[in-house]
Write a protein that binds this DNA or RNA. Structure first.
Lengths: 343, 343
DNA sequence: CTGAAAGCGCTTACAG
DNA sequence: CTGAAAGCGCTTACAG
């Protein structure tokens, strides 16, 4: 049950724990340990299946080689995929990842941050919830390596990695306008977070640039806290309320999914009765009939940049703030009308 | 930067670290610490924002309150959803979760297990890869709290939580037969793992029970290591090779998704030219047109049982092995013919 | 070339 | 009612 410790090896090798530690940490040369002793220790370690206790090491060195990753929802396609790459990339640097989902709830986020602090994680990748400013500020003041993802807090300059939400939404709206759609609705969340604001801004900017009208009644905001059933009801009655509606832009993947379901339940045909674009890609969008046009985030790039920025911080070789904004890609499928089918 | 320690509180309160530790661990009563001292310490702790160092505590007590969760692929819908509930449930018991994906690769699994051991996790939830027997055996011999998920190793009796793969596949096949389909193909993986075997067994048992023929040429196995493109090619040529094929059962969610894509690319219509059932549910299956009939796993139940079994082990109040098999549910949608549409 | 000793921040058996 | 001391398993500054 009890593991093998450095002491056990030292005893069997007839040397001190110090020497064992040096050899096992690859400092044999540097500390000028004889080859003979070195080999004996290495052999003994593998024979006894020595597993260094990271707790003890962490306590002593102050480094746990662990990073905390706080996402909105690990079961969401976007976050799950980012998490996977983050884990793979972190592994390359010898770091493990401790995850947690906030559900965009402040209390949960605070709880997660507290636990991660207890666990002495070396760095943080955080998807901030609303009103998390105080906690982010104090992490920043403590000079903890940290990078935000998916959104940032405008009042607090920090590292972050984001998709270009404004451009993504702008492109989507412009694409619909160029196809000749005139009555375009936007379905988004009630969230005042920057990523959602930017999507709204990009969308309205495109409308304005093309002199298209976007009256308030064409904008529907669904609370993040709404159940699926509530959201479907709200989207359906919104659509029914605008008889001449010809296109809808959904500002995030789960709303896009709800949207497809709502439109289906209303007996409308996507691509014929109404054009649809969603932010974020998803297997469902690709394989839906008709395929759903979407604004795809560069998930691999996002994850790689997150780790790269964080590793820079962890190794202390950065002074300035890193704010990475990556381009979104409009993936054209069939949901905006048969005429647009590109094969 | 440096955190507040028990010593700091002790100094400021004018008591010993021992007393502080007792009070902070809720042992004030038991250790008969005066109310006065107790209150002073508690007040001081919150004023100084004392955060107990879990590393130190873990080193001393041997308990880290962390469990390791090894899944096949955290980006897969099934595993991501299980992981999310596992995390929520574990949290209720004060445990954090350390995740990792194996990609069903033995070397990755070994690496993950090693890291988790370094980190002194208290217990393990493991989706075993092929040939992981030795490692599982040694964990078992070390009496580490452990429960397997999604599959088990037939040669090693351990705790596990699984869906009833045999019954799920049996029901699917029987359903197709009852609808009058005669030429039913099975697309599965080359994996020899028990969950895949059981799905194959359930399928063939249903065929046999109904005196239906299931020649070898109706069975297609795709390697787990195939790229998406390779898998699509293989599925397409398999389908093309059987002109009178009228139904296909895909044995897992990602194959079901590939299957839908393949059928689409062949220009065939699901539910008209060919009936389709997939193991596992997915948003995509629910919202596809036509909806894809599937064998759904009880994800919440699986996750809850995993934690329940593991907590039993962690608290040492179990002697016998816990093997939980949960029923699968056939969700009937439109992919098996218009006649079967149940609304 | 190698080792004795201190210390990371806790918990706990023991003592009074 | 409270405290001194040992120890969990490491690393590292210091000494020789």
């Amino acid at each position: 049950m009890k593991g093998v410790s450095i002491k056990d090896i030292a005893k069997q090798a007839g040397v001190s724990p110090t020497t064992v530690s040096f050899v096992l940490n690859g400092k044999a040369k540097e500390k000028r340990i004889s080859d003979q002793v070195s080999k004996k220790i290495l052999k003994l370690a593998s024979k006894l299946k020595y597993k260094p206790n990271q707790l003890a090491r962490g306590l002593r060195t102050g480094k746990t080689k662990t990073i905390g990753l706080i996402v909105e929802d690990i079961a969401n396609h976007f976050f799950a995929n980012v998490a996977k790459i983050v884990e793979e990339e972190a592994d390359k640097f010898g770091y493990k990842v401790l995850y947690g989902s906030t559900e965009d709830d402040l209390t949960k986020a605070k709880g997660l941050l507290e636990v991660l602090e207890y666990r002495q994680v070396d760095g943080y990748i955080i998807t901030p919830t609303p009103n998390l400013d105080k906690e982010i500020e104090s992490l920043k003041n403590a000079r903890k390596p940290m990078v935000l993802m998916d959104r940032y807090l405008p009042q607090i300059p920090t590292n972050y990695v984001m998709v270009n939400n404004f451009q993504g939404a702008f492109d989507a709206a412009e694409y619909l306008l160029n196809l000749g759609y005139g009555k375009i609705a936007l379905v988004t969340t009630t969230s005042e977070q920057i990523q959602m604001k930017e999507r709204l801004n990009g969308f309205t900017a495109a409308m304005k640039a093309h002199n298209a009208s976007f009256p308030r009644k064409m904008l529907k905001k669904i609370p993040f806290t709404a159940t699926k059933e509530e959201a479907l009801e709200q989207i359906k009655s919104f659509i029914k309320g605008i008889p001449d509606l010809d296109a809808i832009f959904f500002s995030t993947n789960y709303l896009g999914i709800y949207g497809i379901e709502s439109i289906k339940e209303l007996g409308l045909k996507i691509g014929e009765d109404v054009a649809v674009i969603s932010f974020d890609d998803h297997d469902l969008f690709r394989l839906h009939t008709p395929g759903i046009t979407c604004v795809a985030q560069p998930i691999n790039d996002i994850a790689r940049n997150l780790i790269q920025v964080l590793m820079g911080e962890l190794n202390g070789n950065v002074s300035q703030i890193n704010q990475v904004i990556l381009p979104a890609t409009l993936l054209k499928r069939e949901s905006c009308g048969k005429a647009t089918l590109a094969r």
